[in-house]
Design a protein around this nucleic acid. Structure first.
Lengths: 349, 349
DNA sequence: CTGCTGGGGTGGATCGTTTCAGCCTTCTGG
DNA sequence: CCAGAAGGCTGAAACGATCCACCCCAGCAG
């Protein structure tokens, strides 16, 4: 409850000037051993802790970066966050972690706060298409790196994972198993969703006229609950018209769909095959281990933070767009070809 | 890339003094409409954003709080974080989110950073028993609220969930199903672990001499991977001596145990029943839906943040220890009594 | 007309740190 | 013995916002 200790108190106690204490903190080798020891003792005795705000005020730039994600409860984003955190702390930066909930208004408020904090830069998984606030930050000279989203123009860095390719990969896998009625489950404005859907459509279109068909099922939210409601909708569809394979926009949704189908007595993968997206740790622990499109989550975060640091330090930095490749992991939720073919035949009778 | 805009630039443009601009920002009603409009225009035109550091330097207190958790990848903690965030933003505070990974050194570094930032207060799920750093923070007058851990002395606030009771509840449930060889899976210094174990022991001891026995299986880490390794160890035990019921210190570990057992051909709950802890969303989506001890996660965080705010604002604040009660949620992973009894009988032959 | 009130505004001190010009000593080489 | 350099330290300016004592003037009562 005592008044906070400032550099001045330390200086008085050590009988040196404040400048010397500052040197002790930042360039200790510049002091004579005797002085250094006196200052060290004073710092110790008083329990002095630097005031980062004052430091930052003088320096004009802070030592923190902001990270804004869509959903802190989604393990995908916590893994990304961990990658960001690791890379940031290697660069001596701390991270302010913000959760936009996919709400542009909330996102805007957080960006405002980050701007007031004069963060060194911002990593963001944007909520939607309208980024005037992000633009405003950039205009103010704050580096912004887009995560999990490819930058539209070359005006900024981005790190993403090929979502179109991931979607195509997932659906090609399902088509390869003999499925011809496929559903895409997902919703929202986010580019990730649109891209995965596009990839799925590409794969279906490639089967030519009279080939496979893709049905889109909207979910209220992109979490387990949302998936559950989509699963119930699916279960309520008469079997004859029901898709035999489902590609879900992320694993949370896939888990929800799986739960609902199982609960309604629909066999996975016997009646309906499922492929998710992200390959979160829980995907393999599901009731029926989930096939999924794996993304390099930590690397995504790490690479983003590195680009951000580079942009902040290097004056003639060139913006880059890093794109990782997703990878399909096949598990029990998408049936092996042999079994599937048999089933198609019998249902054709 | 232009120089950042300060209150001074705004003042020049609006042809007023800096004091007036400050008033505009903090007490707009004190200005005459004409002046207010002029300043508003200048702020707008220059894209002025307050410098929070300068503000804070002058004010002596910041508008952020720190939150330190053990494992950001554990959904339990993300749910807690969400509760904290909600309550904090209602109080106009932002949250700096830190992940100690259960490592006291990393925890110490984060506390140091938070101290340098002069946060308004700290919410922490401490990594271990040695809290000198936390004490140092408190001595400096920074409110600290312990989360998920009961404060030892009355010198600080804490919000926790009765872990002893939770552990007892889980094991009593298993004993009630007829199990007599029970294992506890977990490890680490954290009080949560010790308390849940103690509760489990209490329940076992209550069965009297010649009653049930509790075996402790250590895991390398408290996540899915750790659980998997414990599960393999369990599977390698000869059936005759193998516990028929397992109480896991958290759901991640339980999911890992479940995976390993299933993979090794051991039926859950037929051969081994499992109860987890936390009741994270994924517990019910597991291969065998997991029985678990539910904790009010968001409320935990929310209540903690509220206590913190109260302690920071109210000079004659009395420390409080809030304790929530856990709740047992029974699912398929712990067999119903009827089935279990049959099985015990048959294995006794 | 005078004195008073109070709304509206000013300008400088202040917060804690860093930075930098400059001062004093001591040392070195010629 | 002296000029100059180098090392070690000092003290004040600056960062951007807030706060506060104070000033100015219009309006009003006496």
């Amino acid at each position: 409850m005592t008044r906070p200790v400032s550099i001045k108190n330390v200086a008085e106690r050590a009988k040196v000037s404040v400048g010397t204490v500052s040197n002790f903190l930042n360039r200790p080798e510049a002091l004579s051993p005797a002085t250094r020891e006196r200052v060290r003792e004073a710092v110790e005795a008083l329990g002095f802790v630097r005031n980062e705000s004052a430091r930052h005020l003088r320096a004009g730039r802070s030592r923190t970066v902001g990270l804004v994600v869509l959903d802190i409860a989604n393990p995908f984003f916590t893994d990304v966050a961990r990658g960001v955190e690791d890379a940031a702390s290697e660069a001596g930066l701390s991270v302010i972690f913000c959760n936009s909930d996919g709400d542009p208004a909330k996102e805007g408020r957080y960006l405002e706060i980050l701007a007031e904090q004069r963060v060194r830069g911002v990593l963001i998984v944007p909520a939607d298409g309208d980024h005037e606030r992000i633009g405003a930050l950039r205009d103010r000279g704050v580096p912004v790196v887009l995560l999990d989203r490819r930058a539209a123009r070359s005006g900024q860095c981005s790190v993403s994972v090929g979502d179109v390719g991931g979607g195509r990969m997932a659906v090609e896998h399902l088509l390869g198993l003999g499925h011809s009625r496929v559903a895409f489950v997902g919703s929202g404005e986010a580019r990730q969703v649109a891209d995965r859907l596009r990839g799925a459509q590409d794969a279906v279109v490639a089967t030519g006229p009279g080939g496979a068909a893709l049905k889109v099922i909207e979910t209220p939210t992109l979490n387990v609950a949302g998936g559950r409601s989509a699963g119930l909708e699916l279960a309520a569809t008469p079997r004859s018209g029901r898709p035999t394979a489902v590609f879900c926009v992320n694993d949370l949704v896939a888990l929800g769909v799986l739960q609902a189908l199982t609960q309604e007595g629909i066999d996975v993968p016997g009646d309906v095959a499922i492929v998710g997206y992200d390959d979160i740790d829980f995907a393999s622990a599901a009731a029926v281990p989930l096939s999924s499109v794996r993304q390099p989550r930590q690397q995504l975060g790490r690479a983003g933070a590195q680009l951000l640091v580079e942009e902040a330090e290097d004056p003639d930095h060139r913006h880059r767009r890093v794109v990782f490749s997703p990878e399909l992991v096949v598990r029990a939720s998408s049936a092996p070809a042999a079994r599937r073919r048999r089933q198609v035949a019998s249902s054709a009778i």
